[in-house]
Simulated assay, not measured.
Amino acid sequence: MSQITVVEEVPLNEPVLVEGFPGIGLVGKIAADHLVDVHGMVHHANVHCEGLPPVVTYAADNRALRTPVRLYADPETELMALQSDVPVTPAAAVEFAECFAGWYEETEVLPLFLSGLPREKDVSPPDLYGLTAGPADPRAADVDLEAPPESGLISGPTGAMLADALRRDLSAVGLIVESDPQFPDPEAARTLIVDGIDPIADIETPIEGLTDQAEEIKEAKEAFARRMQQANEESSQAEPLKMYQ
């Protein structure tokens, strides 16, 4: 059963919902958090589905406690975002997916489920791929999203929610972006927003802050790599010869 508690009513007609659970490169969370911030989205509802950890969170410089998973909405852009401060374990993903789908099945929401595809970073921009479940939705039909070049599997809460949408024959879009498998990847989140979310939702999102984050993380990763290289050069170590590989 859906357990969505409304905090503030927001007039919406046919919103696009962006799912922001943590995952590879934190791309979904970075994208959803950025959308909430730059569009000034309103805290619309709290999510109390089974499968979520029994914890509370709090924000910096704010004494108010809050639920770890929340819905935000913006009536001007007809945009919603699922913001999560916690991951959902694989064992709990199915319970959460059934609960959450029970809510958006009763609305005109088009959910966009976000996932990172592990790829080592290089100088080229990350590729973005699109997948669909259920009936074709006109909000996504005119957006030219490339299909993945190879077979794959989507796991975790994102995969569970897409599987539930497929089972219920509900319209849903899966956006997969190539992402850093080890570090937060704001560049991949930027690609999600500019090439996927904005065209489908028919909005324009400022992304200057994400560009700054990408440069800062790049510099931090390079500094980390230099420190690791120096440590390896200065310390004794044993390495396998790999004679049989």
Rank of each mutant, 00 (worst) to 15 (best):
P87I: 09
L82N: 01
T67L: 15
P68K: 04
D74R: 06
V86N: 08
T67W: 13
E78C: 06
N62L: 11
A73G: 03
E76H: 11
T67D: 15
E78N: 13
N62W: 08
P87G: 13
V86F: 08
P87R: 12
M80R: 02
S84T: 01
V88S: 05
P75T: 02
T77S: 09
D85C: 04
V88E: 04
R63S: 14
A59F: 11
V86E: 08
V86D: 08
E78T: 07
Y72S: 07
R66Y: 09
P75G: 05
V69Y: 03
P68S: 04
L79W: 05
P68M: 03
V69K: 02
N62M: 10
M80H: 00
L65Y: 11
A73D: 02
Q83L: 13
A73H: 00
D61Q: 15
V69I: 06
D74I: 06
L65A: 13
A59W: 11
Q83V: 14
V69H: 03
L65S: 12
L79H: 04
T67S: 15
E76R: 11
A59Y: 11
N62C: 12
P75W: 03
R70W: 06
R63H: 14
P75S: 06
E76W: 06
E76P: 05
V86H: 07
L65V: 10
Y72L: 09
A64R: 13
L82R: 00
A73L: 00
A73N: 01
N62E: 12
L71E: 01
L82A: 03
A81E: 01
R70T: 09
P87A: 14
L79E: 03
L71C: 04
L82M: 08
R66C: 09
A73E: 01
R63A: 15
